[in-house]
Design a protein around this nucleic acid. Structure first.
Lengths: 232, 232
DNA sequence: TCAAAAGTGTTTGTCTTACACCCATGA
DNA sequence: TCATGGGTGTAAGACAAACACTTTTGA
């Protein structure tokens, strides 16, 4: 019985499910792999955890390397750890998956680590026509489920909005992620009734057409009570 | 820059937060460590993940070794992975924490691996008078928070009940875990209205005093809708 | 003055709470 | 018959969905 005691070859990585809203669609950041296995294929960004780094630190570092964005401004939470034997054909690898949510982020810049990174609509990335490396499709699926669920009972939806934002912007997040329409007036009431979900700035922004909307910033509340209900 | 690539000495373990209800208190299974570090101290049960084992499999195996219980009958879910450098003084160790919930389990049996295991009320294990090994206090705290939260919007409360159980048994779970009282009549209505949370057996059990109560089994629903609301 | 989007008001029906009340049992 | 916990009924109030309506802008 070969009990694993830290001497067998084992690797620990972090992988990132990074979501943003682009062109009215929920999109995920994928990279083109530059080395085997799955060379040339698409994968979630990620990499090894370094010696003196904690897990969140490793996730933040990868986030910066792949998007050039200061991760401190995004929502970042641990998703789950995947470690089924054989998920990496080379060596036993455990990956700690993180979920990151942010407003429309700068397009990856050529000439950096992020050169091979690109945004893809989540629906497309999960369709049978796209094959992701390793078990990244399952990880992406779980990230999507988590994001959808968290909109209900937390205020993370605001993490998708560039500050300052309008209530229509915020509603748009729910509508895109949940793929349904919400009543603007009832949505408004719910958000404003929740304590410190958003705080008004007093400023307004005019849409292309129509009455200008008031602008808000994120409030301090994390838990949303009462929760936003997802219609059947 | 020493990028970690799987050759540095690293260990991966699973640790278990196992909750049950004993003597009207939420209790957690702790073991007395038989070897350094923290020899003689209290810790969550756990151990190394073996070569060909997946994470859930390792958790189930540890569960069986420590409690003698077939884990297939308990609720078992991944909690979070902890990997801050230095959390184990010997070697860089990542631990995947699992949360297990079950009905009052058989007391640990002398002469087995479980000989040094014991139940302790969670309130006591988290009090300043008790010091747990490694970062196990933080893990326990997170397990408690997760369990409390999950009672609201899932049916896991039933995992604490030995089948068949009465609605009073089930209500008792909520009252102990949340440390408050619930109105029996309203609780009853909520549980019965939720589709397939519990299913009646037709049998009854007489309490020490009072009218006999109908007995139920767990239903198939995992998500509880509408959720159970935790009074302020 | 029209279209479009922001924002308010109001109706109607559902769900929750609180608590009064009845039921079935052992002592 | 009493005490005790199981279980039902119900009135008052809180809440939410639906939708009519008003406001503010650019064209």
């Amino acid at each position: 019985m070969s009990k694993y005691d830290g001497t067998a070859p084992v690797a620990v990585t972090v992988d990132l499910v990074i979501f943003t809203l682009r062109e009215s669609a929920l999109q995920v950041l994928l990279i083109e792999r530059g080395k085997p296995p799955f060379m040339g294929g698409l994968a979630l960004p990620g990499g090894f955890v370094r010696d003196h780094e904690d897990l969140r630190g490793a996730a933040l570092r990868e986030l910066g390397e792949e998007t050039g964005v200061d991760g401190a401004k995004l929502h970042l939470e641990q998703l789950r750890t995947f470690g089924t034997p054989g998920r990496d054909p080379r060596v036993r690898t455990f990956t700690v998956a993180y979920l990151a949510l942010g407003p429309d982020l700068p397009a990856p810049v050529a000439g950096t680590d992020a050169a091979h990174a690109r945004w893809m609509p989540v629906a497309q990335a999960l369709s049978p026509s796209v094959e992701l490396a390793f078990d990244h499709q399952a990880i992406l699926r779980e990230g999507l489920d988590r994001a959808r669920g968290k909109l209900e009972y937390t205020t993370v939806a605001a993490a998708f909005c560039q500050e300052p934002f309008t209530l229509a912007d915020l509603r748009h997040v729910y509508e895109v992620v949940w793929d349904l329409d919400l009543d603007p007036s009832n949505f408004r009431r719910k958000v404003l009734k929740a304590d410190d979900f958003v705080v008004p700035t007093g400023a307004f922004r005019a849409p292309e057409v129509g009455r200008p909307a008031e602008l808000y910033r994120r409030g301090r509340t994390e838990l949303l009570y009462p929760p936003m209900v997802r219609p059947a």
